[in-house]
Structure formats: C-alpha cells, structure tokens
C-alpha cells in the first residue's frame, strides 16, 4: 500500500517540472563536477539540496518544484513572487521592482527551508529572518541543447545577486538543486521506481 501511495505521488508530479529532463540520482561529487565542467560561478556555501525523499515528495506537490526559476521571499519569510528569464533583468538589477505584497496562497520560506540541507555538509538551513530578501534559485543538472542557455541564465542570476550583495543589499541566496539525491539512501528497487516514474512524468 505504501508503495502504491508513493507511486501515486510520483505519477502526479507537477507539470512545472522540466520537460524532457532525464532524472538521475546525484551526489555532491556529481554536483561539483557539473559546476566545474560548465563554469558555473556558484559559491559552495550557497548550494543546497533536498534533504530526504519525504521532503522531495512534498516539494514536488507545490509550484516551487520547477527549474530554472527564482522564488523571492521577504524578511518574514513570506512569498513575494517568482522571477523567470523574462523578468530577471528588470527585477534582479533593481529591487524596487520586486513585488511588495505577499502572496498568501503560496507556502512560506520555512516550507522550503525545512526540506533542504547544504549539499556537502548536510547542515540544515534555518531561516532566522535576518535578510531583507531571500532568493531561492532552483536548478538542475541539465544536459542537451538547452544546457548552454540555462547555464548562462544561472550565471547571470547568481552573478547579479552577488553584485547586489557587494553593493550592500542584505540578501540571502539559496541555490537549490532539485535533483534526486543518492544520500537519501533509497534501495535499488526504490531508486528504479523513482526514476521510472519521474522520467515518465517529465516526458508528458
């Protein structure tokens, strides 16, 4: 029964997940290697992953499960808006243009942060409401013809946010890798189930 319930979760994966993305299990080495090979300018301290399979399941049931995209939260951890490649230049270069009104229909930052951990140390993230804005950049280890465009976009987003930080903006950047992770410790059978269903879902 438990298996059926899990399968149901996976089969009903959000339509927001990337089309034609081939899921595969990742770990901190594969993330490091991808970052290095593709010249991603990511600082290791900002990189996070989903901490366990339960968290991943919960994440996939929300509109936060998409990539590449940025979710913006205010100091209280309330959701403000999402930023994509169309709006990123205007909004990330000038925070005056970020929506001020909170969206009560969306989960708060805490919903996300309680499900994530640092990709290397495994340390959990605790939102202490210290930052004016928190930017969560969702990303995946994309391959194929879209890869150069997505890599360029991720570098632009992270680069401009780093410039904002250096200019004195009190912000937190979370580079959230939303791939499935080795360290969840799923059995081979489970890994097979998960991949089969995720990949079937992303083909739709």
């Amino acid at each position: 029964m438990k298996k059926i319930t899990y399968l149901f979760y996976l089969l009903t994966l959000s339509v927001f997940s990337q089309s034609q993305y081939v899921y595969n299990f990742k770990n901190s080495d594969s993330l490091d290697s991808y970052i290095q090979k593709n010249n991603l300018v990511f600082h290791p301290e900002d990189i996070y992953i989903t901490k366990d399979f339960e968290s991943f399941k919960a994440h996939t049931q929300t509109s936060f499960f998409a990539s590449p995209i940025i979710f913006v939260f205010n100091k209280e951890g309330k959701y403000l808006e999402s930023i994509d490649n169309i709006s990123s230049e205007r909004k990330l270069s000038n925070f005056k243009r970020i929506r001020k009104k909170t969206d009560k229909d969306q989960p708060s930052l805490e919903f996300l942060t309680e499900k994530i951990a640092h990709y290397n140390s495994g340390e959990v993230f605790e939102d202490k409401h210290l930052y004016t804005y928190t930017f969560v950049i969702n990303w995946m280890l994309v391959s194929g013809e879209q890869k150069p465009i997505i890599i360029k976009l991720l570098n632009e987003w992270y680069g401009v946010l780093l410039r904002q930080k250096r200019a004195g903006e009190n912000i937190k950047i979370i580079l959230l890798n939303i791939d499935v992770q080795d360290h969840w410790g799923l059995s081979q059978t489970w890994r097979g189930y998960v991949l089969e269903n995720l990949n079937r879902s992303s083909d739709k």
Partner: peptide, 12 residues
C-alpha cells in the same frame, strides 16, 4: 538612464 544602469548592472 536608470533603465540603462539596471541593464549594465545585471550583466556586470
């Protein structure tokens, strides 16, 4: 001018 500055800031 501000729009141009934002563009330049975005791309560094």
């Amino acid at each position: 001018k501000e729009e141009l500055e934002d563009h330049l800031f975005y791309y560094g």
